[in-house]
């Protein structure tokens, strides 16, 4: 399924995409984000994937839960600034036992230019944990695909909510 998209050499997101495909992800929901942009394009160009753009991350929590009701595995791609938008909706996951996987590009933690990103970025991990998530962090390009695949396995095999934080050092800090 990867043949449709032309990855740039060295783009670690190709490994992430392949890991998601190996784990039988069928739905991808996202809020547009620079750090995920090649992954989002690859998902849109993959005919076997249902790729849905959201107006807010909160929708993605409910959408992926709905996909599970229909027997499909999903993932949400988001940025750390969207975590706070989801907090009440996260109650769906723990109350019903929905497996839920999200990949989160981090802001507000590494050479951040925009101070408005820092409060949510710094609260990301604790917000997830207090909402019942397992949280993993990826810091180095060589590790990302393995971490994402392990996160997907524990998410769907053990039916739990899992967040993978893709560090701002990994993504590259935004240049204005």
């Amino acid at each position: 399924m990867t043949a449709d998209y032309k990855w740039q050499d060295g783009d670690w997101r190709q490994g992430v995409f392949d890991a998601l495909m190996r784990q039988d992800i069928r739905q991808v929901a996202y809020v547009p984000d620079a750090g995920h942009s090649s992954l989002i394009e690859a998902c849109h160009e993959t005919s076997d994937l249902i790729t849905t753009v959201l107006t807010t991350e909160e929708e993605g929590v409910a959408l992926i839960a709905g996909a599970d009701l229909g027997g499909q595995r999903g993932v949400m791609l988001m940025q750390s600034s969207g975590i706070g938008n989801c907090v009440n909706m996260f109650s769906l996951l723990s109350v019903c036992g929905f497996p839920f996987l999200t990949l989160v590009t981090m802001r507000g933690e590494w050479a951040e230019f925009n101070p408005w990103q820092i409060p949510m970025g710094q609260a990301s991990e604790e917000t997830f944990r207090r909402s019942g998530f397992l949280v993993y962090r990826a810091e180095r390009p060589d590790d990302v695909a393995e971490i994402v695949e392990a996160a997907a396995r524990i998410c769907f095999d053990s039916e739990c909510a899992v967040a993978v934080l893709l560090s701002q050092r990994l993504i590259g800090s935004k240049i204005f």
């Binding site: 069928r26 739905q27 409910a62 992926i64 709905g66 009701l69 009440n88 109650s91 769906l92 109350v95």
Partner: peptide, 25 residues
Amino acid sequence: NFYLWSAMGGAVPMALGLALAQPGM
């Protein structure tokens, strides 16, 4: 029937994810 008892604002996106997963229903 899947009943929501909270998750206010989530009924439509949940139904969307389900509809996309089950196009024959």
